[in-house]
Amino acid sequence: MDPLVRLKHAHDQGIIPDSIFDLVVKRFPITVSGINRIEKASGFQYPVAYVEPSLVISSSQSDSYEYGILFARTIPVLFEDKFQVVIQISAPLVAYGLKGTIHAILAHEFLHFLELMRKISKMDLVSDEISGNLFENMYSDETRLFEPRAVFNDRTLLNHITKKFPAGFRDYKLEDKVTKFWTNLNLPTTNISLDENTVKLSADSLSKIQLDPEFISKIDKLSEKSSKIRKKRLY
């Protein structure tokens, strides 16, 4: 899969202007280097990733004025009984994010991927939990993922994650750039509600997914290591 295929298609249709297209293509190697870095630091292969040519915004159902920017998402796909996890990376992140920010977000989504695979291996994903507001959603997000120190052996990468995700990702400088150079120019924006950003797979679908036993064994070891680190931090 060409990770820039959707961006190229949007550019060909005139949806994405030349200047933005050229900027994303020029800076995309930062994303590639981040993926390579994560694979080296974790010992796992990164899922399929692609650049989404729009700004993805998630809003709370209870408060239409409350919203957050989703610079990347982990999306499970089940097509003709074949399971695949895809990482969606927003074009504004590639265009305007600093190297450390891009790598931290890619690593964070990788943790989502690992947690998703852990739940699937335990048949524990019939219905993922839904939170009513963005703050609760961010808190839940941080408490259910693997501990980064259990997964990555890259100290600089761990520092990036710690600084960017103390309690939900916020990068005000990046958000200001995106507002100025993307939103204010009326470039493509995708709005989703929080309940659309959850995973829902039936028990029948889960039962058809076949996972590599060696991969699951590595996931289980990471889960145990992560649990030990979290207990030490709490007690």
Rank of each mutant, 00 (worst) to 15 (best):
Asp2Thr: 02
Asp2Trp: 08
Asp2Gly: 03
Arg6Pro: 01
Leu7Met: 04
His9Val: 04
His9Asp: 11
His9Ala: 08
Ala10Tyr: 14
Asp12Gln: 05
Gln13Trp: 13
Ser19Phe: 07
Ser19Glu: 10
Ile20Gly: 00
Asp22Lys: 13
Val24Asp: 04
Val24Arg: 01
Val25Ser: 12
Ile30Gln: 15
Ile30Met: 11
Thr31Cys: 06
Thr31Pro: 01
Ser33Ile: 02
Gly34Asn: 05
Ile35Lys: 10
Ala41Ser: 07
Gly43Arg: 04
Tyr46Glu: 03
Tyr46Met: 03
Pro47Leu: 01
Tyr50His: 15
Tyr50Pro: 07
Glu52Gly: 02
Glu52Lys: 05
Pro53Met: 10
Ile57Gln: 15
Ser64Gly: 04
Tyr65Thr: 14
Tyr65Asp: 14
Leu70Asn: 15
Phe71Ile: 00
Phe71Ser: 14
Thr74Asn: 14
Pro76Trp: 11
Asp81Phe: 06
Lys82Asn: 10
Phe83Thr: 11
Gln84Phe: 05
Gln84Met: 15
Pro92Lys: 05
Val94Leu: 13
Tyr96Met: 01
Gly97Trp: 01
Ile102Val: 13
Ile105Gly: 04
Leu106Pro: 04
His108Lys: 08
Glu109Trp: 03
Leu111Gly: 03
His112Ala: 00
His112Asn: 04
Phe113His: 10
Leu116Asp: 10
Leu116Ser: 02
Met117Ala: 02
Asp124Tyr: 07
Ser131Gln: 12
Gly132Ile: 02
Gly132Asp: 13
Asn133Trp: 09
Asn137Ser: 07
Met138Pro: 00
Tyr139Trp: 04
Tyr139Glu: 13
Ser140Ile: 06
Asp141Gly: 00
Thr143Lys: 07
Thr143Trp: 02
Leu145Ser: 05
Glu147Cys: 03
Val151Pro: 08
Val151Thr: 12
Phe152Ala: 04
Arg155Gly: 02
His160Trp: 15
Lys164Phe: 02
Ala167Leu: 08
Gly168Val: 06
Glu175Ser: 05
Val178Gly: 00
Val178Thr: 09
Lys180Cys: 10
Phe181Trp: 15
Asn184Leu: 06
Thr189Met: 15
Asn191Arg: 10
Asn191Ala: 07
Asn191Tyr: 15
Leu201Asp: 14
Ser202Met: 09
Ala203Thr: 06
Asp204Lys: 10
Leu206Phe: 12
Leu211Met: 15
Pro213Trp: 11
Lys218Ala: 14
Lys218Asp: 13
Lys221Ile: 03
Lys221Thr: 06
Glu224Lys: 12
Lys225Glu: 14
Ile229Leu: 15
Arg230Leu: 14
